[in-house]
């Protein structure tokens, strides 16, 4: 129960809210959050906590988005989701570093991490839409407006970060499993 309340549900809600704010989704928000939580719990139940879990989670979150919001879901949402994961990794790293330097308690680190995640959402929820705007501006190749970064370079940057991030996630998950059975 502690694992559910501390680890899985808040994380799934964080991902759902991040996508809602970034994509400025106005409808079916509750359904989307519920589906994201259910998806997370089901995957956690059936798949071992490793990189395959993260891959499946990314694919299924895109499928949910596509089913609920149809043409509003784009391939760039996979990268938006990766940004959400990157923020999660960063906040987790900061939380664990702080707690280990002071209390040295794993549960305290998890609680701090969850609090910081939602503080991040509260502080930046009105700015997250800029991510989507950036993708719309830079993703497609066009003659219509001058941009500083070429579409091909932008895609390559995204891909390199995306691929490397999954490697880091794999290391992080292995570390979490060693620490405490994957809370």
């Amino acid at each position: 129960m502690l694992e559910l309340l501390l680890g899985q549900i808040p994380e799934a809600i964080y991902f759902a809210l991040f996508m809602i704010f970034t994509k400025e989704l106005k409808t079916k928000r509750v359904l989307y959050i519920v589906l994201m939580v259910v998806e997370y719990l089901l995957l956690k139940h059936f798949i071992k906590f490793n990189m395959w879990f993260q891959i499946a989670y990314t694919i299924f979150q895109f499928i949910i988005l596509k089913i609920l919001y149809k043409e509003k879901a784009q391939v760039t949402d996979i990268f938006t989701f990766a940004i959400a994961s990157a923020v999660l990794i960063l906040i987790s790293f900061v939380s664990y570093s702080i707690i280990w330097a002071t209390l040295n308690n794993y549960y305290a680190a998890v609680i701090l991490c969850r609090i910081l995640l939602f503080v991040f959402l509260v502080l930046y929820h009105k700015k997250l839409y800029k991510i989507q705007k950036l993708y719309k501006l830079l993703w497609n190749r066009t003659d219509k407006r001058p941009v500083n970064m070429k579409s091909t370079t932008f895609r390559a940057v995204n891909l390199v970060i995306f691929n490397i991030m999954f490697y880091i996630i794999n290391l992080g998950m292995a570390f979490m499993l060693i620490q405490n059975g994957g809370v």
């Binding site: 391939v75 760039t76 719309k136 993703w139 497609n140 895609r155």
Partner: peptide
């Protein structure tokens, strides 16, 4: 991703 097949089709902007 490195092909035009992954272009985004936004109904308002693109």
């Amino acid at each position: 991703i490195m092909t035009g097949r992954s272009n985004i089709c936004d109904m308002y902007l693109w």
